[in-house]
Amino acid sequence: MIKVSILYPGKAGSRFDVDYYLRVHMPMAARLLGSAVKAVSVEIGVSGAMPGQPAPFAAIVGFTCESPEAFTAAFLPVAGQLQGDIPNYTDIEPVIQVSEIREI
């Protein structure tokens, strides 16, 4: 199993509309990516390591899939729709990482 993580770095003066992201973008992403995605998690940044410190990331989303190929096959046909929606909720350029999930 792999996880595709999309991280939105927290930057002073940046915009991230959590309500739109959770209410509109993520349901659309789940619908468009379909059965290739086995699980979805969304984390909204609250703070850094110390109280009162800004969160390093505005949000982090994780899509769990069987393989990178499964995610790519689902994502490429709908990439334009998903990426085209980004300006509706943020001006932050996302960072993407594909990781292998290991059980401990």
Results as ranks from 00 to 15, higher is better:
Lys3Pro: 03
Met50Ile: 12
Tyr20Gly: 00
Phe57Asn: 07
Pro68Thr: 12
Gln83Asp: 05
Ser41Asn: 06
Thr90Gln: 08
Ser14Gln: 02
Leu76His: 09
Gln81Phe: 05
Met50Leu: 14
Val40Cys: 02
Ala30Tyr: 00
Cys65Asn: 06
Tyr20Met: 01
Thr90Asn: 02
Ala30Val: 11
Glu66His: 14
Pro77Gly: 05
Ala79Ser: 15
Gln83Ser: 04
Gly10Asp: 12
Ala59Tyr: 09
Ser99Asn: 12
Met28Gln: 02
Gln53Gly: 05
Gly52Cys: 02
Leu82Thr: 07
Val4His: 05
Pro94Phe: 11
Pro77Glu: 08
Gly10Ile: 09
Ala55Met: 09
Glu69Met: 08
Leu33Gln: 05
Ala49Thr: 14
Arg15Phe: 10
Glu69Leu: 13
Tyr20Lys: 05
Glu66Arg: 11
Leu33Phe: 07
Asn88Met: 09
Gln83Phe: 13
Ser5Cys: 12
Leu76Cys: 01
Val95Gly: 08
Pro56Glu: 15
Gln83Tyr: 05
Thr90Ile: 06
Pro51Ser: 09
Ser35Met: 00
Ala55Val: 05
Ser41Trp: 11
Gly48Cys: 02
Gln53Phe: 14
Leu32Lys: 03
Leu7Gly: 00
Ala59Ser: 11
Gly62Tyr: 07
Met1Cys: 01
Val42Lys: 00
Thr64Trp: 15
Pro9Lys: 07
Ser5Gln: 12
Val95Ser: 03
Ala12Glu: 14
Val4Phe: 04
Ile104Glu: 12
Val4Glu: 00
Asp19Trp: 09
Ala70Pro: 03
Ala58Arg: 15
Ile86Phe: 13
Ser99Pro: 01
Gly84Cys: 04
Ile86Glu: 05
Arg15Met: 08
Ile44Leu: 05
Pro54Ser: 03
Phe63Ile: 05
Tyr89Gly: 02
